[in-house]
Design a protein around this nucleic acid. Structure first.
Lengths: 157, 157
DNA sequence: TTAAAACCGAGTGATTTAATAGGAATTAAA
DNA sequence: TTTAATTCCTATTAAATCACTCGGTTTTAA
């Protein structure tokens, strides 16, 4: 029951993008450098975020990425589901609306457990908007206004 | 963010044991057969459940396993944590009380997200007692009182 | 024209998962 | 006292997944 680096790195990348949001695109190399993440690896996560309508890319020189929606319309749940796939603890038809066929759903008792876990996770992540994390990070870097470019926004790898 | 078969099989095994709870021990071979799970594999999960004080083994012929606590004292969270390890989405000191050292916990914003997820999962599973699942399974098998031995209690693998 | 960037797909070593297998120790019952 | 049932313990393994790396192509601003 651990998030993979897809979810962890990807959320950091989107948050970095959100913190540096403006009218000009941000190059992936900058995000990768600031966050200390391999750019090649980050590159693989981008298509998932694009498909979910979270970021959009600007090709060519001086290109980069922009958020495709305002920060207060993007929930952490949107981001994590885009990167990790559904956040359900099992592949079960009664939990994951219809997906994942199951033969004896009628005699299944554990599905109540999976449903409760699934609902609680999704409610938690859907209740946090990207804008809240942006605000929080601005508070944290306020005391040292100069090195705003270096803030990692997240711990560990 | 999926539970492994450890958690899914193991919970089914404990639930099976709880449904067939009595003063005589239940052989693992019976649980394995009823639940359609490899006995060799189930055998590997038992030490985790014993260490957590959930089951105890009776050795020798006519031996087997018994619940080590009353069903209303065992939460689903106890069982899943015993089988899967902690249910936190990341290894982060600020989430997983102290475990997992972290260098820049001070500038970390994402930890708020991980904490919310972690808390919601643990609250969900700690709020369900094994006794509730036993009751639920009795309700489901009530219409056909004869085949109580065959109830799988869970779907899929 | 050039260089910076997004875009695309293939390959890879390490780790984890989900088992299987074989045997030793214990004990109730024949 | 033997036998058979059972827990207990450790090792091995095939397959999948993870976390990257690499090499190239297209696009586009300067």
């Amino acid at each position: 029951m651990k998030l993979s680096t897809r979810g962890r790195y990807g959320l950091r990348a989107v948050l970095d993008l959100a913190v540096h949001d403006s009218d000009e695109a941000v190059a992936l190399s900058q995000i990768a450098e600031r966050q200390g993440i391999s750019m090649n690896y980050l590159e693989q996560l981008i298509p998932k975020l694009k498909k979910a309508g979270i970021v959009r890319g600007i090709r060519g020189a001086q290109g980069g990425y922009l958020l495709a929606m305002p920060v207060d319309k993007i929930s952490i749940g949107d981001i994590l589901r885009a990167l990790e796939g559904d956040l359900n603890p099992v592949d079960c038809a009664d939990v994951n609306d219809g997906e994942g066929a199951c033969s004896n759903s009628d005699t299944c008792v554990t599905k109540y457990v999976w449903k409760r876990i699934s609902d609680s996770i999704n409610e938690a992540v859907d209740g946090i908007m990207l804008s809240e994390l942006v605000e929080e990070s601005r508070k944290l870097q306020a005391p040292v206004p100069n090195d705003s470019n270096k803030t990692k926004l997240s711990c560990g790898k």
